[in-house]
Nucleic acid binder design. Sequence first.
DNA 1: GATAGTTTCATACAAATGTTTGAAATGCAA
DNA 2: TTGCATTTCAAACATTTGTATGAAACTATC
Lengths: 223, 223
Amino acid sequence: MASDQTRSAILAAAERLYADRGFGDVTLRDIVAEANVNLAAVNYHFGSKDELIAELFVTRSLQLNRERLRELRAAEEAGGGVGDIAEILRALVGPTLRGCLGPDTQHSTAARFMIRVNIESVPAIRRIRNREIDHLRKFIAAMKRALPESSAVELYWGLHFALAMAQQTVRDTERLTKLSDGQCDVDDVDAVIARVVKVAVMALTAADSGSKVAPRVMAREAR
Amino acid sequence: MASDQTRSAILAAAERLYADRGFGDVTLRDIVAEANVNLAAVNYHFGSKDELIAELFVTRSLQLNRERLRELRAAEEAGGGVGDIAEILRALVGPTLRGCLGPDTQHSTAARFMIRVNIESVPAIRRIRNREIDHLRKFIAAMKRALPESSAVELYWGLHFALAMAQQTVRDTERLTKLSDGQCDVDDVDAVIARVVKVAVMALTAADSGSKVAPRVMAREAR
DNA sequence: GATAGTTTCATACAAATGTTTGAAATGCAA
DNA sequence: TTGCATTTCAAACATTTGTATGAAACTATC
């Protein structure tokens, strides 16, 4: 049989199980049982468990980054080289939120897997995540073009906060829903995206209006 | 010897090791070696490994919540029952950021432990975290008093975003620092707090100015 | 100072886990 | 078919892990 068949059966089974039960308590034996292949197949095809996880994450990660850049390019082309800041931020957080939120999330294994990645945090993935920085620099550059007056520091913080709001919404959907007794509709993905983008834009545009942040230095002793 | 001595030696050693190396690869044998006690002591005093972790987390968590509520009360008393929204949010995110950021963080075991809790995510802790909701409701109530015009939904989102920015800053300090080549000074805790609070306040006050969020429904197909 | 309760200790247990091995099976080219 | 490389398989390996046990040491009370 084509060796690819076993390989992709493992990948699919692993992603499904990780998505459902998290990285913590899914063993290789669980995976091979789900995939109907031999236990040794994982090490034969991937080398180790960590490399299997890494391949899963890298695949989905590249998909996400590709989509982000596609939307970023579209935003900048629409503006003739300089994108609207809201559209740039939408390109940054949109794919994540669209992928991980919404009512159809239950049906997409890839989405549930990426949510797991955001909730849990296994070393094998943390290592790879650091490469994401180069990717983010492209957004910083685009933001710089959109807001040439803004200082670099403000742009960094703006991007940081935008990602923070998006990722936390993915990670803590449950808490927000419980806290608000379901009043915060996380399934209306477009509304959530608009919300995050709006706040991020405010953070960026309010900052460059010269009003330096004024730290309250009331010297509250911490303990 | 007083049994408390062994108990607290275990707690201290465990917190130190978890803070330094994460929950993933610290075993009971590591802990008892560090604490200079017998292996069986952990199960004798705590019942199980998970209960040890839980006790560590609960202790620090209660400390954090106490501090938050203390500052919340101070904020509301200063305003004669109704606190300034910025001060309320500062009471929410201040303790977290002050505890987990700053140059002295390297020296505080408790701080590094709480950072770990934010970065990794072990089931024993996730279970407990859900109780945090009742605590957050007190902040929602205070925010409601400060901004009586705002709808509940806006308040929930505002609190959610405030926590998002604070926690992500704790969690991803390294990424922000690397991305900005050190230009974003995360060690200036007061400035970071001011930044987070400022954005959160903007998110809250801009929302209740009638401008409903306008979702872009350009029906981009997701795949 | 004997007794009862608590704490410590060395050691064993039992189960789970990722990985390796060497042979069998399979696919493919000459 | 023959030969060679790839792939599959069952079984074993080697640790590592949290937990349990029962005896010994210790503490405090009468």
